[in-house]
């Protein structure tokens, strides 16, 4: 398919300058940014607060217009309404309409994407099952927990079956169990061939799911590339052994000292606190 050659997101020489009202100063939010996200990738856009992540995302979604440069989604310019047929978006800390139930929320977003009738009902049922909210379909969003809100948010983002998902801090404020569920959902999307762009400053999570990352700092892309390439220490190798006897370890030590290599550290790997927490609270899958 020719589509696989077209980048899911293409940003070329993007600059965004915000004037400050009643002052002559201007704020440069994004400075000459270029990056491409290939279809099927999970791309992590990282950066501290105020680095220009949100602005970049808003430009991709056509919510803000660029001062210079272009962004396209599967080849269509972001300024065109049609480009958004292929995008699902989950903003940071979304509220949605508190007065709607989970099901009504998906009906609403489905309708504004042109779905109706049996197809809309079918899609809603499917999505509620996907994000595990079938039990809460008739409850109003006002009574949803943070994690449930985030999951209904993912469901609405997927309602028109977009090929690209843009997620802004999808796990901010969600407890570890909920966070893990969301992470699993994202990995699930990846297996379905959905491209995901993820903005986050929870680095550990990004590390777990992203294929490729870009780091923004003060509106500029400072590093970009495949995750393993960026974080692997090229002249070091990690061995993790199970049931190794002290004797074996001594032999390895002897081999190392007889070579050019140097043993830097030897310790027992630890569980992450997150994994420990999940084991204790019994939510490990």
């Amino acid at each position: 398919m020719a589509d696989s050659l077209v980048p899911a997101i293409s940003i070329r020489n993007l600059t965004k300058v915000y004037p400050i009202p009643f002052k002559r100063e201007r704020v440069v939010a994004v400075r000459n940014l270029s990056l491409h996200v290939e279809p099927g990738q999970v791309y992590g856009l990282l950066g501290p607060n105020g680095s220009g992540k949100s602005t970049t995302m808003k430009i991709i979604l056509g919510l803000v217009s660029p001062t210079e440069g272009t962004t396209t989604i599967f080849g269509r310019d972001s300024s065109e309404v049609e480009s958004r047929e292929q995008v699902g978006f989950l903003p940071e800390n979304p509220y949605f309409y508190k007065f709607l139930t989970g099901e009504e929320t998906l009906f609403f977003y489905g309708k504004i994407c042109g779905l109706r009738g049996a197809k809309l009902r079918e899609r809603t049922r499917e999505l509620l099952a996907l994000v595990g909210l079938e039990g809460a379909r008739d409850r109003r969003l006002g009574g949803y927990s943070k994690g449930m809100l985030q999951r209904i948010g993912l469901a609405q983002a997927l309602v028109q079956e977009p090929r690209l998902l843009v997620l802004d801090e999808p796990t901010a404020g969600v407890d570890p169990a909920g966070s893990r569920e969301i992470r699993d959902l994202i990995l699930n999307f990846k297996t379905r061939g959905i491209t995901v762009m993820l903005c986050s400053h929870l680095l550990e999570q990004v590390q777990e799911i992203c294929d490729r990352i870009g780091i923004l700092h003060q509106g500029k892309l400072v590093r970009e590339g495949r995750l393993e390439e960026l974080i692997s220490i090229e002249n070091q190798t990690e061995l993790i052994l199970e049931n190794a006897s002290p004797d074996l370890l001594r032999q390895i030590g002897a081999l190392v000292s007889g070579s050019d290599a140097k043993l830097i550290a030897q310790h027992q790997p630890q569980r992450t606190l997150e994994r420990f927490f999940l084991e204790v609270t019994g939510k490990e899958k």
Binding site: K58, L61, G62, L63, V81, E82, R84, E85, V87, G88, F89, L90, P91, E92, N93, P94, Y95, F96, Y97, Y109, I112, C113, G114, G153, Q156, A157, Q160, V166
Partner: peptide, 14 residues
């Protein structure tokens, strides 16, 4: 304020 507007305008809605 609730960012609901973003979710709607991020859909193909003029």
């Amino acid at each position: 304020e609730d960012r609901t507007l973003y979710t709607i305008l991020a859909k193909p809605v003029p």
